[in-house]
Amino acid sequence: MSMKYAYYPGCPSGTTAMEQDISMRAVFENLGIELVEVEDWNCCGALEVEDPELVYALNARNLAIVEKEGLNIVTPCSICYYNLSRSNNALKGDEELRARVRSIDDSLAYNGGVEVKHVLDVLANDIGIEELRVRIKKKVKAKVAPYYGCYIGRPPETAFDDPDAPGLMDGLIEVIGGEVVAFNYTKTKCCGGPLMMTVQDVAYKMARNVLESAKNAGADCIALACPLCGMMLDAKQEDIEEFFGIKIGMPVLYITQLVGLALGIEPDKLGLNKNVVDTKEIIGKVM
């Protein structure tokens, strides 16, 4: 495949979500798709920068850098996707806004020539399920709860899947030989992540709901595509267990890690030793 994307890793790529970054790079290399990291990228603003115009200006810089390269941009983070994509829409559709942003600094001169993609969209649509079926070398015989969370099916302007019954991740799980468990009610519910630092008990209740729904559905693991969900459900799982006095023990994998296993990539090269809840059981299901 002679495809090439600008790659926007996002801030957690070097810390809490390094396994997402590692597996994304490994999967794309395996598929022969070139990723060019956005030169000197800055933070998208996450959910904490509340002023939309500030978000647009922050991302105008990222988009302008990518536009010079003549590429489209892909990110593995749902929040980065949401901010890059809504900024792209706002800037493309509003000449006055573009001019105002440009007047801050020449490096923010963006002309609207970039398309923003989430990794799930690239895997399931740009590369495509049929192409992946040909590339797959192994089966991941696991029962998987596909957890989409926010910003994949909503809000409507940036969504690339159904808001209530998204299916792109389900399709990927099936093609790698996994079994999708019944998880419909919970798969688009928020993980609670945005409240983790400010209203901890509410955040924990929301994350517990996702984890227990997956467990009750008989899942061997949760698949996801957002570092904040990953932090809540994986890195904080022990805290949640302790807080409620319960035991969950649910492995949480990034979808790129699962796809990578099916492509025959070594578990360590997919960062499967970096997930906090042990992933050995899932690795043992790769045949």
Binding site: Y56, A57, R61
Partner: peptide, 29 residues
């Protein structure tokens, strides 16, 4: 898990920090 080593104790910085300052001064309300 090797996710919080010495590297994460220090900030990762963009090279062009002047523009960050300008964005927050001129766009932030």
């Amino acid at each position: 898990k090797g996710k919080m080593g010495v590297k994460s104790m220090l900030p990762e910085k963009v090279k062009d920090r002047g523009v960050m300052k300008k964005i927050f001064e001129q766009m932030g309300e």
